[in-house]
Amino acid sequence: MSILREKLENTSERVFTAEFPSIDGGGMDSVIKNAARLAPWFDAVNATDNPAAHAHTSNTTTAIAMKMHGLEPIMQIVCRDKNRIAIQADMIGASLHGITNLSLLTGDDVTAGDEPEARRVFDVDSAQAINMARIMANGTYLSGRKINPAPDFYIGAVENSAAPPFDYRIQRALKKHRAGAQFLQLQICYHPERLEAFCKGVAEVAPDLKLIPTIVLMKGAKGLAFMNDKVPGIDVPTDVLARASGASDPAQEVYNLTLELAQHALSLPGVRGLHVTDFRHDETLDLFMNDLGQTPKRQG
């Protein structure tokens, strides 16, 4: 059983996950360097699948490399680049290497990346992909062909708690849960009241669905403005932008704001931990985890 599953399903301990940086050049050394930085703090780390529609080392190969160097991977699969055959191949291929944590999501559109000419696939959507993982964990491919023994998948998904249609987001999370998702990593949300309403709504109906909101560590006010302007589905309220840019030390103010968001998120019903995206790549991560009362789990 994966550490993530064991901790989420059999304990009440907080869980911390993170995003593994994209790997291009740099070879295994860059994997080792990043793994060493993340290992002390995180229970499991996401191996991304061509994030923001940019090609990088693939989800499966990255996940294998992470596992070789001491991290427990959560392998992401997006629906943009692969049809149902390739997605099932990704999942069973991951299980061959003992990778069983999955996170299935729609994925950014091809137009978000540096190759907008590419064909978009979306043969299945995220809810269908989650259901395929569940079907495989029950012992068959989508076609009905048997898998013996069945892979022991721990199935995750992603939801945006703060994008329109607001009222519907809870129902969509519950639909993913019905399809087979056992944990949900939530997209970054700068509207605490929206995150709160979402978590309360989900926890009321599905108390066994584990919620893991995202927190982004960024360098300063410009990063916030960038998220607001350039990342569809992410809205940063005007007063938050003003608080960050108007401060005498904007970098410190953004850190304070991030810590407040993290503490609030951890107080919400259904929330079992945090997913940390670190755009700073410096000692801020250690400071942040210390400020949340965490101590390093193991040496990287």
């Binding site: 729609t106 950014d108 559109d109 269908q128 945006n160 639909k175």
Partner: peptide
Amino acid sequence: PKTLRNGPCGGVRENGNCEV
């Protein structure tokens, strides 16, 4: 544009418009 059959993706803009 993503031919989603089971609800909206996470990229819906604040004004309710499409990511793509």
